[in-house]
Simulated assay, not measured.
Amino acid sequence: MATVTLSSSLFSTQKPRTLSFSYGVSSDKLNHTSFSGNFKFGSMKQSRRMRLVPVCRAAASVVFRDLDADDFRHPLDKQNTLLLRAIPGLNDLGRALLGTVTEQIMLLENIGTSVLVSKNQLPELHQLMTEAAEILNLEAPDLYVRQSPVPNAYTLAISGKKPFVVVHTSLVELLTRKELQAVLAHELGHLKCDHGVWLTFANILTLGAYTIPGIGGMIAQSLEEQLFRWLRAAELTCDRAALLVSQDPKVVISVLMKLAGGCPSLADQLNVDAFLEQARSYDKASSSPVGWYIRNAQTRQLSHPLLVLRAREIDAWSRSQDYASLLKRAMKMNTVHTF
């Protein structure tokens, strides 16, 4: 298999970057300059900084011992992944352009600027990650915490080496523990579904197409639009992974709501039901022919679905027979964590 570097940034208001894809607020045109996206929120009170408490799980919490990625993959993700696989020469191009130097740069940069989470280092964060991985039937990657005022999280997976997730301190400050675990589960969803492989190859192919004289620009633009469609679908899949771990749609929707307009000082006033009603009002406002055109023009080159639409999607899936069937197949967790 090719040596692959993937960067999956969890939430981002900036453009997706070379060898990367974002998971948060929608971003627009590709910008091939660095590895991760970001977004800003207000600062957190000092008294709450990095204060972690164990997740309190209900006795009914379950794990998915035989979970396969296709069990929760969004239909649009399946469809667009097949389209990416059909691009001639994508794997060969990835093998040619990716190598150990890129791997080492990203790995050493992360090790040198972050804190590695373990049983002896930020153990409660370690618990959140290991529990989420257990629920999704996945080996837990390494988890790093990086000091940054920009709330963000992303995943890197390097062929032959253990993948790792990076979480910024400001994201920890913004979210509750259950919400933070949903974020980690979203990142695990990218690993479970091998999303980064296809994104990396597609980014490289898009970059290479720009160098072809004459028609290169048209080819690259077409690939960009296809890549954006896949990215938006992949995010819907990983929101489902977050729900499988949290097993409470309001937790996942709360994360999306806070990304849309939350801050620590207003957290106790936010209302998930009102946010879902806002999503329904968006659907109504965009249902006319003019609204439909504006909506498509607004989202065609975004790397993420709009946050209100992601909230509506996860709410709908939480009520679906597919989700109910997955829960019926699951097993109760061996350990129940309490405060």
Results as ranks from 00 to 15, higher is better:
Ser148Ala: 11
Gly24Thr: 01
Leu231Ile: 13
Gln181Ile: 06
Gln278Cys: 12
Ala324Phe: 09
Phe164Met: 09
Leu136Asp: 02
Trp198Thr: 02
Gln14Pro: 06
Cys263Met: 15
Asp322Gln: 06
Ala220Glu: 02
Leu306Asn: 05
Ser27Ile: 10
Ser36Trp: 03
Pro289Gln: 06
Pro123His: 07
Ala267Pro: 12
Leu97Met: 14
Leu199Ala: 15
Glu225Arg: 13
Val255Glu: 00
Ser246Gly: 06
Ser320Lys: 09
Arg310Val: 01
Thr18Phe: 11
Lys15His: 04
Pro305Trp: 06
Gly37Trp: 00
Asp248Tyr: 03
Asp283Pro: 12
Trp198Val: 01
Cys263Trp: 15
Gly89Trp: 06
Trp230Asp: 05
Leu188Val: 02
Pro54Thr: 05
Gly160Trp: 09
Ala58Pro: 07
Ser287Val: 03
Ala153Gly: 07
Gly291Val: 01
Arg51Val: 12
Arg280Asp: 11
Leu10Pro: 08
Gly99Asn: 12
Asp77Asn: 11
Thr113Gln: 12
Ala297Leu: 12
His32Leu: 14
Gly37Arg: 01
Ala330Trp: 01
Leu52Trp: 08
Asn137Lys: 04
Val251Cys: 01
Thr3Ser: 12
Arg240Thr: 00
Ala260Glu: 09
Asn120Glu: 06
Leu207Gly: 12
Leu122Met: 10
Gln278Asn: 10
Lys15Leu: 09
Leu136Arg: 00
Met50Ser: 06
Ile111Phe: 08
Arg57Lys: 14
Arg319Glu: 11
His190Asp: 01
Leu302Asn: 12
Val308Tyr: 02
Thr206Pro: 05
Thr130Tyr: 10
Arg232Lys: 12
Tyr154Ala: 05
Leu227Ile: 05
Gln269Tyr: 13
Gln269Leu: 12
Phe201Pro: 02
His74Gln: 04
Asp273Pro: 07
Leu67Glu: 00
Asp70Arg: 10
Phe228Cys: 01
Ile105Asp: 10
Asn110Gly: 13
Leu231Gln: 06
Ser8His: 15
Phe21Ile: 09
Val117Leu: 05
